[in-house]
Design a protein around this nucleic acid. Sequence first.
DNA 1: TGAAAGCGGGG
DNA 2: GTGTACGCTTTCA
Length: 819
Amino acid sequence: MREHNEDEYLFGWNPTPGIVSVWAQRDGRAVIWRRDGERILCTRDSYRPWMLATTLDDLKHLGSMLQPFAPDTMHASVTYKELDGPGRSYRYVLFSRNMRVLESTVLTGASRRLGQRITAMNDLDTYYSVGPVEQYLMQTGQVYFRDMSYENLHRMQFDLETTALDPHRGRIFLIAVRDNRGLATTLEAPGPEDEKRMIQELCALILKHDPDVIENHNLFGFDLPFLEHRALAAGVTLEIGRAGSPRRTLDSYQETLAIGPEARKRTRYSLAGRELIDTLDAVRRHDFVVRDIPSYGLKDVARYFGIASSHRTYIEGSDIFETYRRDPARVRRYALDDVTEVDGLSRRLLGAPFALASMAPRRYERLASAGPAMGILEPILVRSYLHAGAALPYQAAQQSAEGGLHEGGMVQLLASGVAEHVAKADVASLYPSLMRTFQIGPSCDRLGVLLYILGRLTDLRLQHKEAARAAQPGSIEANHHAATQAAMKILINAAYGYMGAGSMALFADGRAAGEVTRRGRAILQQVLDALQQRGMALIEADTDGVYFAVPPDWTEQQERMLIAEIGAELPAGIRLEYEGRYRAMLSHEVKNYALLSYDGRLIVHGVALRSSRSEPFGERFLRKALRNTMLGNIVDVRAGYLDTVEALRKRKLPASDLATQVRLTKKPETYHAARQTHQEPAYEALIKAGRTHWHPGERVRFYRSTKGYVWLPDETEEAPVSDDWRARANGERPATTPDVSIRYADVANRRDYDVEYYVRLLTTSYAARLRKAFAPADFEQLFRPDTQLSLFDLDTPIEHIQPRWIRYQQALEAAREDS
DNA sequence: TGAAAGCGGGG
DNA sequence: GTGTACGCTTTCA
């Protein structure tokens, strides 16, 4: 590894500052927008479209039109450079004036060589290519945001308020818009006839303020598709791209997912000159590491991060339009509070992707949502190899022969039941530490770039962590260092996963990945043994961490000392950390448990303890019962169960408490065709309510009454909007039967539900999740819906029932000796 | 028992 | 078409 360009592997080499967006086309043209204070400079550039190849065989038919690359080879249609590397590798970089030309040339040659028509580059594993922007950035060594701070970036948030969730059934009536330069306003459409004007105003506002970034929570899943649908219905073109780009409209394309009709349509969006950021992606990525965000909803997440204002306005989703008609000012406040929270989330979570964009050769918006291994680390590795003039490894064949499968991390349930005084220890960055300590990298990485990068990132990250601590809290400098260390952590954690990735990854090495997990299991086993020798009650071990119960009288200090003592026995470079302590833990199955913190918070992990149907009454019962079980208040568990049964039998609960929600996948025709043999509650509920028409994808909330299923529409009475343009465009006949319009409020309070069905559901679906906490006979007795306390003489009095305790062994023995 | 489909989140 | 989200679950054959 040469000294002088080491960090070029990590950060690129071209110093161009302030790039906020890049748009490159397959014909070699690129547009770059740079920010200089409040000014935007738009420049045009060109690059040489390229791809990597293992062979030149497919280009033989070009004859003299194929030439080795030289600055003045003007007449060749394809040129190539040879890279250093073994025979079987991506040794050639092919260049052409246009990617289209390059691809069709290769496809022609490959078809000839293989004796069959090849139409897609994807069918050839002897070539490797990346998207136009990636090509441009890798070739020039440029990256986004050089010398910029996150505060420099001009970010705009907009949020739609609509009359229904489905754009087939509702419309936009309000749009809140703000930016980090002081803009905060709403655009409104009180009646359906105002919607077109409002969408045009939104476009004008975006062009006028000209942000670098457009952000919202669930932007790709809701706002953009809804906006696109309504703009099409209103006949408005969404021209919101940046001046200087060859295309100004919002671009959307369906990712062709072969199965299903419209139901599983995944749409991607892109816009020239502006980056589209969905804070929902950022939340997901954050939780991928911390794994304790209970809900990804905007309001919940804002509270979780402590950025929700105490004065913020909350309105239930289905009430928003109703509220708007009565009290529009309240909805304006609500919508502006939403975009303010999105800005807060962005500041809290997007610093890391921002920092990543100043390292990896990809668009900021892609780095914000890309998988860290294939999406971020690999482009860095590819750029490094190309910059070093080295061939990339080709290993698709041997990879599949070796079968990338290897054993994973250690996952063990060591006890189930309820434990008190629980501590958690885990090994800090277990896999990357093992890779670094034992120098385990992919064997095909001849330059050792992955291990080099890993080591460099680890060192730099410590420096940035330290600098973040030293800087004034909340200052631009502190934020910069905090975000950079977070970005580096993402890359560090991706290193192992990348080696273990299947044959898709250029530098995958299943054997090396297996070596890492093998050593990881050994380390964790060593920790488990050490804890056990000291009498701790082991509960659950998962990859790099362990939960265990300590003696009841231990302080946090004693727990920390124990972990420090055990950590000192581990190999150098491997650090055991104290992760936290809990008042109690209910251990159900591997990766499925509940924790009760010392400050009274209930944390539920794993879906075995959650419900996917999640009728509100059942969820409430379960949370209370979990808490009481962990506190040992078994009498209260029984009481909570009986209260719920009574509330059901006396019909004290509104129907909305018993409702569940399902997404439709079948069109009306499809459902009707199969209805005789197979009925499904959600569709039956709609039909019973008089609905004849629906679109796959619609969410239906319903409950079970004594006379069938009842639809609870989460809509206001203005819905549905006319949607006939689409039927006409598709050459269909517009729906002839007018849709019914029922209001949620009219039915949500009904009490005609099927009591015995819900009593059964309470027992078999919710109480059942506490089964592991009790002995079988005790469980049966606790959750028997009759109110007679004892049917059998064998019954234990409720007040004597105990959970199945998991206890510190030596403490138990000591207690026995005392008595 | 294994593969395929569903789900989150948004008004 | 400006690259394969994601990591689980439930359901179905």
